[in-house]
């Protein structure tokens, strides 16, 4: 029973990569900017994630000390919002909308193509570190369905067969 429990428990892996000390110093300007008010945790985390691509333990601990916010609280926020991640991401995040409108207009086929051709499923990162695939519920652009975001770019009215062509444009 306990063995099964241990297997099934969705444990978040400790970040494997060690972030070197001097690289952690990059966080200092963020800490300086948001110090003194605990209500700016989310913007601070967002900027930190933009800097490192993800939020490993060292980064969270450093922010915790610098911003004087308890580490468990930061971890709670990071694990609550799907936007934040503790594991490294690909260089480009593909956010594929699987909301109703996109779904009926072909997002399902697009997903299949990505899974087959790029070789990653939802929530995974490709081996070469190029892409991370995320499924989102709605991007608020149903008029352009099916919609996909790659990084900051939004692509709409996609014909499923053109999916790969769009993705190939991102190195």
């Amino acid at each position: 029973m306990q063995e099964r429990d241990a297997l099934l428990k969705k444990k978040v892996q400790d970040s494997v990569e060690q972030i070197p000390r001097d690289k952690l110093e990059l966080l200092d300007p963020i800490i300086e900017k948001y110090q003194g008010s605990t209500s700016y945790l989310i913007p601070a985390l967002k900027e930190a994630q933009e800097m490192f691509g993800y939020l490993p333990m060292e980064v969270q601990r450093k922010l915790s000390k610098g911003l004087n916010i308890p580490a468990p609280h930061i971890y709670g926020v990071v694990t609550f919002y799907s936007f934040f991640t503790i594991t490294p991401r690909g260089r480009h995040t593909i956010r594929l909308c699987l909301g109703t409108a996109c779904y009926v207009k072909g997002a399902k086929e697009m997903l299949e193509i990505i899974v087959r051709e790029i070789g990653i499923n939802v929530g995974e990162t490709s081996k070469d570190g190029r892409f991370t695939l995320e499924a989102v519920r709605c991007l608020g652009a149903c008029g352009l369905a099916p919609v996909m975001m790659i990084g900051e770019d939004t692509h709409g009215n996609i014909i499923p067969s053109a999916t790969l062509g769009i993705i190939e444009g991102y190195q």
């Binding site: 969705k10 444990k11 978040v12 400790d14 333990m57 969270q60 601990r61 915790s64 308890p70 580490a71 468990p72 609280h73 930061i74 971890y75 709670g76 694990t79 609550f80 799907s82």
Partner: peptide
């Protein structure tokens, strides 16, 4: 832990049905 002890050692982590009370990185 937060209001009375001022420790904030525990927090809700994860979301929805997966949410649990834990420390950072368990």
């Amino acid at each position: 832990c937060e209001e009375v002890q001022g420790q904030s050692e525990l927090s809700f982590v994860n979301r929805g049905i997966e949410s649990e009370v834990s420390t950072d990185f368990d």
